[in-house]
Design a protein around this nucleic acid. Sequence first.
DNA 1: CAGATATCTAAGTAATTGCTCACATTCCTC
DNA 2: GAGGAATGTGAGCAATTACTTAGATATCTG
Lengths: 197, 197
Amino acid sequence: MKSTSINPRKSPKQARARVTFDAILEAATRILQDDGLRKFNTNRVAEVAGVSVGTLYQYFPTKEAILTEIIRQKRKLMLDALKEATQDMARERFEETLDKLLRAAVAHQLRWPKLARTLEYAEAFLPLEHETDALKVAIVETAAAFLAHHQHDTPVQTARDLVGALRGLIESAGLSGETDPAAMLIRARKLSLGYLR
Amino acid sequence: MKSTSINPRKSPKQARARVTFDAILEAATRILQDDGLRKFNTNRVAEVAGVSVGTLYQYFPTKEAILTEIIRQKRKLMLDALKEATQDMARERFEETLDKLLRAAVAHQLRWPKLARTLEYAEAFLPLEHETDALKVAIVETAAAFLAHHQHDTPVQTARDLVGALRGLIESAGLSGETDPAAMLIRARKLSLGYLR
DNA sequence: CAGATATCTAAGTAATTGCTCACATTCCTC
DNA sequence: GAGGAATGTGAGCAATTACTTAGATATCTG
């Protein structure tokens, strides 16, 4: 941890500013979850956030910057959760750590499936910053490191396969109305163990 | 088969018209594969197709109609392939039919991964027609019927899970540059058999 | 060829959208 | 309270976009 200030882009350091910054991100997130990219425009984000367009542009240089910031935050949350899940892997049985990993993945994807899908689509056609791209790599590498620690032969490819397959599984369940993480976890475990056998 | 005429929306029956219709769809498909929804606008579709905007609107009532028609066609291709794959399932071993199904799924998704992702995203925020929606259900039902035929306990949920997981697996491999269907088939088989065990 | 029908053109319109800027308000320090 | 810095406003501009329409061109039928 470097400091206590959160330090949005190039912007304010004070309490009011911080509140506004969060309000904008929250409004944008809600719009993306409800209506996808179609109604995601600066006027509407500003309106939902309860600020003016001018204010919005004091915090984010472009509309895309709002999107990438949301993606960056979500990715960071995911990466941190995976790292925490694997931190004791040296002392744990394989299945134990795997369960922690799956729990994190399920929690991350099942809650806002429409938002998750929108962000994943947006990524594919957005020029992402280095940091955001690095986070994606780090996520797969964290999973790969876990597999490698347990003597898996092709950890990187297998990790990418599993990350993709699990995302597809959880996403399709989430979009068709499932909300129970426990039920999801059982099937995620089955899928993973089956593929790794 | 009802007739030899393809019969776009409400439109022409003659050879010239048929060519134009296909040109528009092909142009739209190429744009979606290359740039996603961002550059998918009627002026550009018309330009790439080599016709005027007016002509485009003689074949499709709205921009969204072009999108839904592409989705409908792709879904129909997929469903037909799956039906063909399962038509002899009564006389075949489980693994034999499964392989045919997986081959169809891999072929369908690995060739144009960016297009596939774009269409899947578009679906989530598009009011689809009855026929298109029915196709989606039919795809899962075809897979479920195969599982049920082999005495699977929860064929519908398992089919949906597998369709989702396989899509995620193939999509993530495709987007990270893989193009070999044979290599993909092996891992798809591993994933499916592992989950079904 | 004449007339009817089918197909196509592209300039134009109204609406939307990303973003700016000249100015207003609030906050901090003395 | 004065003055300056930080933060906020929202009308409005330029660009884009979905779609229309009045008319041109091609094709068919006799």
